[in-house]
Design a protein around this nucleic acid. Structure first.
Lengths: 125, 125
DNA sequence: TGATTGCATTCCTCTAGAGGAATATATAAG
DNA sequence: CTTATATATTCCTCTAGAGGAATGCAATCA
């Protein structure tokens, strides 16, 4: 047991195509591999491999149905990930007097961000 | 603009040492690079590089203080990640009649998981 | 001024892991 | 039984990106 549950989950989600598969599964009660292949544009072996990683992290579950394998989202892994980020909620719940500036702007420079609540420029009255 | 904001964030968090840095920053109002080097066991260049990735995803912000660089968590990126997972909350909020089995077990086999709510084995009365 | 400290950056190497092709396996259909 | 379909698996290749060493660059100190 080298990795914790959250590590398994967050490692799995740290890949764009796997996130895409999760999004595709969301809204569908369940999907076969072929359906996911069509919807994702990935090839079948890649889809199967990504699904294996997701299943290992309990982000999806499978049901065998004849020669089909029906995948669906698994709340267990999703909840683990959610809770990991939720534990940081005190960070964005902290209220600063410059919060209005923070939410009204969306700068995304290549340079490291300044601390948003250190932008204490006096308001241009 | 090839990657969305959520992709930047979730890619950044998809690395164990970066997650560790976020956890270290959590609870500290801010930390210098040296402090994070000591606390993480990573070397200074790696810490700086990871912090750069985190800053790009707006997961941390920096303040320059003399020859120090004071890093702290940035709620903007953290919230983006949180919201991405929160959008799946309908998955784990769905209630099944076998939920009690689900929460009372924690199997983690190497094999893909069965659908938890398909384990309809008749209870061994 | 020169030395030191704190950090960023550059260059190099190396490996995990993502994708591709081919194949294995199992079920269903004929 | 033979063939087709659905999926998993194996093997190979290739690249992104993580770590290491050395260096650059400011700011501080002596």
């Amino acid at each position: 047991m080298a990795v914790a549950v959250a590590d398994l989950v967050l490692d799995a989600v740290g890949e764009p195509n796997r996130r895409h598969l999760l999004e595709l599964l969301h809204g569908q009660r369940e999907s076969t591999v072929s359906e996911l292949v069509d919807a994702s544009g990935l090839r079948q072996p890649q889809v199967s491999k990504h699904l294996k990683v997701l299943a290992n992290a309990e982000l999806v579950s499978v049901r065998t149905d004849g020669r089909f394998r029906r995948y669906r989202l698994d709340g267990r892994g999703l909840r683990v990930a959610h809770d990991w980020f939720a534990s940081f909620d005190d960070v964005w719940h902290a209220r600063f007097d410059t919060l209005d500036e923070l939410v009204s702007t969306d700068p995304r420079p290549d340079q490291p961000q300044e601390h948003p609540d250190d932008r204490r420029r006096p308001r241009p009255t």
